[in-house]
Amino acid sequence: MAYSEMVIEHAENPRNVGTLDKEDPNVGTGLVGAPACGDVMRLQIKVSDAGVIEDAKFKTFGCGSAIASSSLATEWLKGRTLDEASAIRNTDIVKELNLPPVKIHCSVLAEDAIKSAIEDFRKKQSAKRGS
């Protein structure tokens, strides 16, 4: 199967690779997928007090399409509010990267990772408020 140019571009030059401090109350971490299924994504967001995502990092174990999907997701997340970030759909990723049907699950995983990171952040925030 031939890869789209966008997938190759992101896989060869992944954006925002790295790790944020998962103990930081302003950081939300999403870890989705499973090693036995061949892909695991960890996506992290750092949210300002104004509720805007000021940084996003990822690490992914997976095929080129999975790496590209998470790389693209981090690019899109920066500068968005949490509500705007929640609105990102896997179909947007499929369209942007031109993913073939067999790789759609990579985009689904990226959407799950975004949701999971936001949820983690919100949980931390409500715990902070509660304490």
Partner: peptide, 24 residues
């Protein structure tokens, strides 16, 4: 491996088998 969350976790001493992964 620099890009792999699993490698990072393994190097930190996390046993990947202890994690409850969500199969998809």
């Amino acid at each position: 491996r620099d890009l792999s969350p699993l490698y990072e976790m393994a190097k930190e001493g996390v046993n990947l088998k202890d994690i409850v992964w969500a199969a998809h």
